[in-house]
Nucleic acid binder design. Sequence first.
DNA 1: TTTTAAATGCAACCTTGTTGCGTTTTATTT
DNA 2: AAATAAAACGCAACAAGGTTGCATTTAAAA
Lengths: 133, 133
Amino acid sequence: MKTTRNTTAKSAILELIKNSEVALSHAEIQKMNQELCDRVTIYRILDRLVNEDVIHKIATPDGTIKYAACNHNPHEHHQHIHNHVHFSCEKCHSVTCLDAVKPSYTIPENYLVKEVNFTLSGLCPACVESISK
Amino acid sequence: MKTTRNTTAKSAILELIKNSEVALSHAEIQKMNQELCDRVTIYRILDRLVNEDVIHKIATPDGTIKYAACNHNPHEHHQHIHNHVHFSCEKCHSVTCLDAVKPSYTIPENYLVKEVNFTLSGLCPACVESISK
DNA sequence: TTTTAAATGCAACCTTGTTGCGTTTTATTT
DNA sequence: AAATAAAACGCAACAAGGTTGCATTTAAAA
Ligand SMILES: [Zn+2]
Ligand SMILES: [Zn+2]
Ligand SMILES: [Zn+2]
Ligand SMILES: [Zn+2]
């Protein structure tokens, strides 16, 4: 099996994502990183981190891809399933993991469900605040 | 207010979407349509149909945008909210509206929720079938 | 320290989506 | 039916997002 290595760029990008309150897009990471590494390398590092299950990928309602750190329950770490809800703000375009919100649904017949991708959208607390005054 | 017109291209594209079992991407519509109209026109027609609330936009977990016909309950037509669940097949990449699946969730505090975008992914019935033999 | 495969930079390329503008078409009015 | 106004269109050009191939560098195991 293929081994994976830790490099300065990989560690730096992982730290960025871990320290961020909101999920980050490739473009945002690139801006925060200007000199660290090439555009293409960022794509490859993000792919690796997703495969290693250290970060997860989120598609916003408009198709933008963002990345957030995984905080697995150690007991279910092997599951590799991210079934928490995300919130996407239509004003500031921030995307947040809502670990507290537990979604439920009826399992559709004949389908094999492997992943849950549930996104709520509207206004985030900061934008609700800024509009109401 | 701006009026909207019916053209041959618009009608043809709407028929394609209505007659399709699965949601269609811009690229798919373009292939099915080769000679009908320009690439840019397809984008503009899709935007118009979404604004007229005749079709709706779906972002798959990998960020691809697909379009499906709306089948509104006439009584709630004015709501313009699409809160049904979608299924995205990781093998054949088909996207389907699952009108029968009713999702539920707890509303996160301080957030203002306007839209729900719930996608399940895994294997569609056809792909489950084809793998099990 | 040597070795080897993973990771990187760079150039080139493709796909997806947008914008501006002159022309065509729809549908309303005369 | 003809004139009119604005919506819709085609086309070219552009911008952003993402991928691929290949030569070079680097991490980490031997
Ligand atoms: Zn916001
Ligand atoms: Zn998340
Ligand atoms: Zn399938
Ligand atoms: Zn749908």
